[in-house]
Design a protein around this nucleic acid. Sequence first.
DNA 1: ACGGAGTTGTAAAAGTTTTGTAAAAAGCGG
DNA 2: CCGCTTTTTACAAAACTTTTACAACTCCGT
Lengths: 122, 122
Amino acid sequence: MAFTQSMAVQSERYKDSHLEVDFSHSAAALDSRRMVLTRKEYELLALLVQNAGEIIPREALLWRVWGYSNQIRTRTLDVHIRRLRKKLGDYSSQYIETIFGIGYRFQPFRAPRAFQDFTAVA
Amino acid sequence: MAFTQSMAVQSERYKDSHLEVDFSHSAAALDSRRMVLTRKEYELLALLVQNAGEIIPREALLWRVWGYSNQIRTRTLDVHIRRLRKKLGDYSSQYIETIFGIGYRFQPFRAPRAFQDFTAVA
DNA sequence: ACGGAGTTGTAAAAGTTTTGTAAAAAGCGG
DNA sequence: CCGCTTTTTACAAAACTTTTACAACTCCGT
């Protein structure tokens, strides 16, 4: 069977050397150990991970995860970020970056090396 | 995400180190002792067991066992889960897991957990 | 370097929703 | 009716989310 690269379809899964997220199962694992996340925690993580390397403004997060329109004053995002970071343990500072005055950014562990050459496992 | 049973492998019986379910005879045994189950209790257990490792949403259980459509407010599922758990005795916490806000999941006894079985959303 | 305004971090409290449970009520076949 | 099963009721308990209150930090102008 030929390997076919799906088109613009977003990947069903994220994986780096420590974190793994299975979007189709709404599941995440850190160092192969299941992460126990609440729904909001998962949604937040998924959104960040799906946009790895990109800054996501607070407004966007609040809209996509909470459905909040602008101009709503709430600290729930911060609290959820904190809980996520806690569950990411020692890696949290590697993974979730605060962009002051704008939002947050998820960074793949140890910087992404654009399309790693898959030396096909022969 | 829609719950689908199409992926479930249909087998005539289930067996692990403590629990055995014979679907063709609608019978179950715990540690080789026959479980005395009512009809609904059996149907609920069977549905869970046939989808071992998978989360079954409340809605799906209510539909498949009770024929209830959505939007019906009832606690009968919870009550049946409780009775089942009671009859599973000490193993109940091993077997029937509550997935908060979603539904329930039956886990084979002490099964080595594969990543796919993990569900972050609690 | 300093200071202030605004932003983010954090712990704990408060609020909301979901699930667990016992007991009563209702349903059902014999 | 009777006995068993199922469902509802009414709270209790647990899980989850949001707010609160204040500490800590960042940016930026002076």
